[in-house]
């Protein structure tokens, strides 16, 4: 029996590179065709950027650094928490994942392809939002700062994708995931914005600052306001990495490929 497998070992495994390329192409097409998700993750932030150029909204929200940070976060949050997790849950329910899983493509590859395409899209969307934002709000950043913002956007995407993955891991039905995803969206935003602002008291401020949106927000605004690296940034980074580790673990540990 061994000899058979040894003979076949190299010949019987289809090319991983070809499989990965095919998956990436297919996942990109699927993502681009889900217009709602693409439009929401670019248009919604831009609307926020445009609206805040009028009147006093900006100063009330706390300066253009915060507004651009908020816009970037809105884009990431919609496409990761609502877009990615819903598509995944839907594909699981329809048996798309099962069909992929009976092919010789390793399972990690099926998931990795989706995540790579998702992060790449987030990167492009964030770049657009960032450029529009700095133009509309008259900020001039150097190349290093632009790169830093994009790096933080990738960090944010990873964090929200991990949260989305955990959601799909813990909850089975796509209807429930849809509903919970929306509630989570609002809670995370409120926690990060209101909590972080200090309106709700000191305890809430601490919780808000350490929350996913709060930590990311602090990060964005310290780069956008051209502040130097501070201890607070270190904590924010730590918080983001912590969330990524914890939620990825939950999302991988409890993930089920079939909906039953």
């Amino acid at each position: 029996m061994r000899s058979v497998i040894d003979d076949r070992n190299s010949a019987a495994r289809p090319s991983l590179a070809l499989a990965m390329r095919s998956l990436l192409l297919a996942d990109s097409i699927v993502l681009l065709r889900s217009r709602v998700s693409v439009v929401l993750s670019i248009l919604l932030p831009i609307v926020v950027l445009v609206v805040t150029t009028f009147g006093k909204a900006q100063s009330r929200l706390g300066g253009s650094d915060l507004v651009i940070g908020l816009a970037l976060i809105l884009g990431l949050l919609t496409s990761c928490l609502l877009g990615y997790s819903l598509t995944l849950a839907h594909d699981r329910e329809m048996g798309v994942l099962q069909r992929l899983r009976v092919t010789p493509a390793p399972t990690w590859m099926i998931m990795t392809s989706r995540l790579v395409v998702q992060v790449a899209t987030n990167l492009i969307a964030s770049a657009i939002v960032m450029i529009v934002g700095t133009i509309l709000h008259g900020l001039s950043l150097n190349a290093g700062q632009y790169a830093l913002i994009l790096a933080i956007a990738v960090l944010g995407a990873a964090m929200f994708l991990a949260i989305g993955q955990a959601l799909v891991g813990v909850v089975k039905s796509s209807t429930a995931i849809n509903a919970i995803g929306r509630v989570l969206f609002v809670i995370l935003l409120l926690l990060g914005l209101l909590g972080g602002s200090g309106i709700l008291g000191d305890t809430m401020k601490t919780i808000g600052d350490w929350s996913p949106v709060g930590a990311l927000m602090a990060f964005f605004s310290s780069v956008l306001s051209q502040a130097t690296w501070s201890a607070q940034d270190g904590y924010s980074l730590l918080a983001c990495l912590g969330y990524i580790v914890v939620f990825s673990f939950i999302g991988i540990r409890w993930f089920r490929w079939d909906a039953q």
Binding site: P14, R21, S22, L23, D91, M94, V96
Partner: peptide, 29 residues
């Protein structure tokens, strides 16, 4: 070594026939 047709499964709803064939050809090498 296996060719599989499942009782209840689906391909990505947003892909065209041509894209699906291309994807699965690639997955099977």
């Amino acid at each position: 070594l296996l060719g599989v047709q499942l009782q209840s499964s689906s391909f990505q709803a947003e892909l065209s026939i041509e894209q699906i064939v291309k994807l699965y050809a690639g997955l099977y090498g």
